[in-house]
Amino acid sequence: MHMSDALLNPIVAGSMYALTTGVAVYSLHNVRKSEEQIKVAEMGIMGAFVFAAQMINFSIPGTGSSGHLCGGMLISAMLGPHAGFLTMIGILIIQCLLFADGGIMALGANIWNMAFFGCFVGAAIIWRSILKKGVSKKRIIIASVAGCVVTLQLGAFFVTLETMASNVTELPFQTFLAFMLPIHLAIGLVEGFITAAILCFVYETRSELLWGIESGTKEDRKSYAGVMSVLGVTALAVAGMFSLMASSHPDGLEWSVEKVTGSTELVKSGEVYEAFASIQEKLAILPDYAFKNSDTIAGTSFSGIIGAIIVAGICTLLCVIVRLTKKKS
């Protein structure tokens, strides 16, 4: 999944560097805060282990292609997401600067696609939530496989997104995605089972080396809140920056409508339509993802951020309602 420089334009590459730097600073802050000397040696050797594992490509049966471990999930299950993320940065820098594997400008994107999802989604969310109610070999297998599959799918999706945002290929988004997701599903499954086998062995022999298996402490909860805030900041950054790269072409539905009717919008007349249109006009504070009567890019960016906040707010509200209803029943 190492992206080459050719797949990104400087703007997307720069944005990915900015996102990655933000998460790295946050991780660094957390590792320093919970400073344990013993972890430094573990970070080094786990990094070497994943680095070596990434060198071995395994064949994907029936496809004629091959894949290799990403390792973000494995590292984070041993070291925790913050130390794991920093270690993954180390691995990817070595691969990029010493072996020309993955572009130097694409380094930010590669860290994001391979390390961020593996460490923060795979370990901090999936691994943690599955093992929260107790540890068993079965749970470790489920967490490892689910974590690897989900994070690899997210990584593959972002590779497609970044390539498309860079406008370097005429390949349609859906076609590219249709190639990327199935192959990474297969790789994710293989990685998941390898990760599960290793972690089960570690659990049986030296369970104290596994991260996050004693859950429910105050410190854990604080760290979980931290992860959620990183994800929140990331969502805002993506909404604010990627929205600027959005294509001005009509979307799939509009395109289809245009092909049939010659216009992207269907004009309907009648009192009911007009009443609803008037309500929508009054309610829409940012029509067409921009400030009213303005076409500035700040409006697009602002719309992205506001949209992300509102969606997060609605989701939180729904969760609160569901929780309250559950308690009552």
């Binding site: 320093r32 430094v40 990094g47 070497a48 270690t87 940065i89 180390g90 691995i91 070595i94």
Partner: peptide, 10 residues
């Protein structure tokens, strides 16, 4: 820390 991890990995 990042520089040191790179050296240790290597």
């Amino acid at each position: 820390l990042i520089v040191m991890v790179i050296m240790l990995i290597y």
